[in-house]
Design a protein around this nucleic acid. Sequence first.
DNA 1: CGCCGGTTTGAGTCCATTCAAGAGGAGTGG
DNA 2: CCACTCCTCTTGAATGGACTCAAACCGGCG
Lengths: 241, 241
Amino acid sequence: MHSPQSRLAPMLQKLASQSTLAEDETEALLALPYSLAHLKRGEFIVREGARATHCCVLLSGFAHRSKVTGEGDRQILSVHLRGDLVDLQNSNIEIADHSVEALTDADVAFIARQDIIDIAARYPNVARALWKETVIDGSITREWLLNVGHRDARQRISHLLCELALRQEAAGICSEPQYEWPMIQEQIGDAMGLTSVHVNRTMQGLRAEGLLRTTGRKMTILNWLGLQSAGDFSPAYLHMA
Amino acid sequence: MHSPQSRLAPMLQKLASQSTLAEDETEALLALPYSLAHLKRGEFIVREGARATHCCVLLSGFAHRSKVTGEGDRQILSVHLRGDLVDLQNSNIEIADHSVEALTDADVAFIARQDIIDIAARYPNVARALWKETVIDGSITREWLLNVGHRDARQRISHLLCELALRQEAAGICSEPQYEWPMIQEQIGDAMGLTSVHVNRTMQGLRAEGLLRTTGRKMTILNWLGLQSAGDFSPAYLHMA
DNA sequence: CGCCGGTTTGAGTCCATTCAAGAGGAGTGG
DNA sequence: CCACTCCTCTTGAATGGACTCAAACCGGCG
């Protein structure tokens, strides 16, 4: 790839893993204007209800998207890692319907909403790739809905662990059997519709079963098949190549 | 609109309510080839795991999308009504990640996947409208995730009632205070992660509070503000104009 | 060394489930 | 027109998974 050095390479890698892009399309994507930012854990990238002006690409670290109920309970909607176009949907709508927050320290690039719209208008195949990205994001959200709606705590948590492990491998961040584990138990609870207390007890169970081990912010999966079956996990919904 | 009579008008109405389309774009959409089918309640339109070949437009009646766990529990992911492009995401992926099923008798039009891709490639603004449709669909799924993850039974059910009432109004199907009610209690349960027994008891509560009345497959909302507040409902996530 | 964020533990409570069984209503066929 | 069936809604009683509300523990860091 002989285009000028762009920090957007992780985004390209992600898109290319799900769509085929021509040379000129790749170059146009890499040539997108962007601004960089380094975020500390807990900083917000977008706030629910704010006017959407930019789309954020994660260059390193982890982020999550969330919404809150009127009573203040938070639902984490998805977890994102390097290369993800975190709030791509904001290219299409005026007002952000959820927040985006850094889960760990993170490097991000902001691309102006209009630039996304323009490149999509100029390159139909790029439009299709971005659209597909949105579709896959939707598929993951639907699986989470199934997870939260119809699986018990042990299954939910195992399922989440499997998903993030697999996505880390796909993004080339980590490989079997050790993975980054960016979430604290309270966040797992907010993602899975459980309390942190119950997450704690359930994860103790998983460890006791010999399925995994955690040390700090790392996780080791000791029994991949076991964890997969504990989580009723099958990766089709991720639509990986 | 002086284009040849097309049964796809409800789809146009839906798209036009969320995006502005030029005359030629409208005509191209209405000129899409399609095949018609009449479905009986309970018939499947697409099955999870099947190869996606067509995209389905609802011309009348209701449909839902769903996934099942390995244990056979069903999660209803969304409910659709006239004008909805029910499985638009299938234009972008090979294998359907969920099923689509008629909730009532319904008329549908099938549009070939490739035709959707082609029209999107030719008309960037149509691509954008379809993409936006996908984005809004995702927003609704995310609100459902919040609903199922962090609200109690009374809130969940009230929220669902509010959403479907509002969408029926937007689609011009019904108007205050009486609405179509296409779901049986077991389906409400499958949508909200509850058992039909508990749905039953909870809805008795809502009726006892004087919030609504149901007769057969119709529902009357007696206290819109009350139901909205019971469901912690605010319509921003629907991204209506 | 003491604070702080995160994890762990305990005991009591509750919302929702399970497992039946019964009632109502709409359609069907004799 | 009645008997029969199927589907949906309703009700009851017992059970249980997850929650609440603390309090204690633990490791890292200033």
